[in-house]
């Protein structure tokens, strides 16, 4: 499974900032650490701010700090701000889906979607930070 670039940027930024909610970091600092475009990340950070997960800190030395809940925010909450991981469950249809083979393919793909959705929905930022910590 591959997440879109904006989603990955968002998850990196959220995990970086949620690891220490009192700390603020600039888009440049985060982009530099993860090797991603500062311009692209800046747009993503604004989206996360509008969602209430980040708070922009103005002025010299400004940046962003985490303002969500590490216990209650899940990976799915973040991902869904940028992409749909379960298009079939949301009713999206493609050519051939009305055929028997298309319906069978939809059934298998829906199974995969369901697992992906359940996985992301069950991992809070707090749990994900533990997984990150284990990576040394």
């Amino acid at each position: 499974m591959k997440l879109q670039k904006a989603t990955r940027c968002a998850l990196f930024a959220i995990l970086e900032l949620a690891a220490d909610p009192g700390r603020q970091m600039s888009a440049h600092e985060i982009a530099d650490k993860y090797g991603i475009s500062t311009n692209h990340l800046a747009k993503v950070l604004r989206s996360l701010g509008r969602a209430g997960l980040l708070e922009a800190v103005r002025g010299a030395g400004g940046g962003y700090r985490f303002s969500g809940s590490v216990k209650r925010t899940t990976l799915l909450d973040v991902i869904q701000l940028f992409e749909t991981i379960d298009p079939l469950a949301r009713g999206e249809r493609e050519d051939g889906d009305d055929t028997k083979a298309g319906a069978a393919l939809c059934q298998v793909l829906t199974e995969i979607e369901d697992i992906a959705r359940a996985t992301f929905a069950s991992i809070s930022l707090e749990t994900m930070l533990k997984v990150v910590e284990k990576k040394g």
């Binding site: 369901d114 359940a118 069950s122 809070s124 749990t127």
Partner: peptide, 14 residues
């Protein structure tokens, strides 16, 4: 799969 509460708990335990 839809038992998010239990799944989140077990994941929080590692």
């Amino acid at each position: 799969r839809d038992n998010t509460l239990a799944m989140s708990f077990f994941r929080s335990q590692g």
